[in-house]
Amino acid sequence: MERVADNPLAGMTVIVVTVIAGMVLAVLPMPDFVPPELGFLRPDWVAMVLVYWLIALPHRVGILSAWATGLIVDVLLGSLLGQHALAYVIIAYIALNLYQRLRMFTVWQQALVLFALLGLNQLINFWIENIAGDAEWRMWYLMPALAGAFLWPWVFLLLRVLRRRLAVT
C-alpha cells in the first residue's frame, strides 16, 4: 500500500474523493422496484463523511471546507445557495467543539451524537425550506438522521481503515 503521509496534497485528495463519493451516494437514483417512500431513509452521506473528517483531522477539515462542501451540495440538489452550507457550518462548529470527547466515545455513543447532529442538519434545512416556501413539518424529516446514526459505525470503520491504510494525516 502506498504511503501518502509525507505528501499533504495526496492526503487532501483522499478526503476530497470520499466527500465526492458521499455526493454520489446523495444523488444516486433508487432502482425502479424500490418504493419512493424509502427515499426518506436516505441519510445525508456528505454530512456523515464531513463529520468523520472533522473528528479525525480537525486541522485539515474545518468550518471553511464544510461551508464550501455545503455550497456544492446546494448546487447538486438544486436547493437555495447557502442552505446546506449553513447547516454544515453549524454542525461543523459543534463537531469541532466536541471532537476530543467524540474520539473517546465508543462508536455507538458517537452514533447517538451523530443522530443529534444529523437531526439538527435536517431541522435547519427544514426551517429554511419553511421560510422560503411552505414546507410542512413531518416526523419523516428525522428519518434520514436515524438512518445515518445506524449507518455511522460502518461509515466510521470504513473511513478509519481508509485513513490508516493510506496514512492520511
Binding site: 461551508w67 455545503g70 437555495l80 445557495l81 447557502g82 449553513l86 422560503a132
Partner: peptide
C-alpha cells in the same frame, strides 16, 4: 463561523 453563517444567509 458566524461570518460564514451570515454569508450563507445573505446568499440564500
Amino acid at each position: 463561523m458566524a461570518g460564514l453563517a451570515v454569508l450563507s444567509v445573505i446568499l440564500m
